[in-house]
Amino acid sequence: MLKVVKPIENQEQESRKPGRKGRWKLWLLLTVLLVAALSVIFFRSSLSHIQQIEVEGNVYVDRSAVIEAAGLRIGGQFFASSATNVEQRIVSNLNAVESATVEKRFPGKILLRVDEYSPVAYELLEDGSVQALLGSGAEIPLRDQGLPAEKPMLTEWEGKEEEKARLCRVLASVPDGLLSDLSEIMPASTESYPDRIRIYTRSRFEVETTVSLLKDRLEILDGITETQSPGSIKMFEANVYVPFVNAELETESGE
């Protein structure tokens, strides 16, 4: 005999069966809990910590200074900062560094590559020590690096740090070939020309100009030193060249 199931009874049986939607929510909850537990275990393990920091490309800046500027330390969180943020910290905290590259190698190794500004001059200090001056104006005491080849010596710039940094930035924008003849640069400010400087060249010329005009005048100066005998050159709004021989003759005739 066939059993007739009433509609109401059939609905009650269907309602007792677990739905697919309920099983999906259960699996999702279990997955989230598992991921959370694994994350806690991972970030507490040594795999998530910085185990090694290497620095490359530094000549004038100490390794420890680069790491400190980066805000990193052994044992710190490997994923705490992005490579871009670390690069920005290095450049902003170290004026000797022009650019930086950070490479993260899992697990736990970070490589910091720095590109420093090149030396544009060196400076003789009052105590007889010498320091390198980089294109950014950074001052680096010389230890084992040696003197920059064919770079001018800056003298009598103590207390004129802002003007000296400005001069360094100008020198950094000039081709090396135009700097090779510059032997010494010293400040010689006047009321008319607050940034006036005096330059002595290896070819025995004495030059007066200003920091603001220097870049434009160096190419002209190179042409004069290549073709004329040693003398005095004033390079302001107009350029005036007087050979030392003529100046000596005028002095003798005046006596």
Rank of each mutant, 00 (worst) to 15 (best):
2 L>V: 13
2 L>P: 15
4 V>H: 10
4 V>C: 11
4 V>Y: 09
7 P>F: 12
8 I>W: 04
8 I>P: 00
10 N>S: 04
12 E>I: 06
12 E>H: 06
15 S>E: 07
15 S>M: 11
18 P>F: 00
20 R>D: 00
22 G>Q: 08
22 G>R: 15
22 G>D: 01
24 W>K: 07
33 L>F: 13
34 L>D: 06
35 V>F: 11
38 L>S: 13
39 S>C: 15
39 S>Y: 09
42 F>C: 11
43 F>W: 03
45 S>E: 05
49 H>G: 02
50 I>W: 09
51 Q>K: 03
53 I>Q: 09
55 V>H: 07
58 N>S: 04
59 V>M: 13
67 I>R: 09
69 A>V: 10
77 Q>K: 13
79 F>W: 11
81 S>P: 03
84 T>N: 03
86 V>A: 07
89 R>M: 12
91 V>C: 04
93 N>W: 09
101 T>D: 09
101 T>F: 06
105 R>Y: 12
106 F>D: 04
108 G>P: 01
108 G>W: 10
109 K>M: 10
110 I>C: 10
113 R>W: 08
114 V>R: 07
114 V>I: 14
118 S>D: 04
126 E>A: 14
127 D>Q: 08
129 S>G: 09
135 G>Y: 05
137 G>C: 01
146 G>N: 05
149 A>C: 07
149 A>V: 11
151 K>E: 11
152 P>G: 01
157 W>C: 01
157 W>R: 05
157 W>H: 03
160 K>E: 15
163 E>M: 07
166 R>K: 06
166 R>S: 14
167 L>Y: 02
171 L>N: 01
172 A>P: 07
178 L>N: 12
179 L>D: 03
181 D>C: 02
190 T>G: 05
191 E>H: 07
192 S>R: 05
194 P>R: 06
196 R>L: 03
199 I>Y: 00
202 R>D: 04
202 R>T: 04
204 R>K: 13
206 E>C: 00
207 V>L: 07
216 D>E: 06
217 R>P: 01
218 L>S: 12
219 E>P: 00
219 E>Q: 09
226 E>H: 08
227 T>P: 00
227 T>I: 08
232 S>A: 09
238 A>C: 04
238 A>T: 12
238 A>D: 14
238 A>L: 06
238 A>E: 14
239 N>Y: 12
240 V>D: 08
242 V>M: 12
243 P>C: 06
243 P>E: 01
247 A>E: 14
247 A>V: 08
249 L>V: 13
251 T>I: 11
254 G>R: 13
254 G>Q: 14
255 E>L: 10
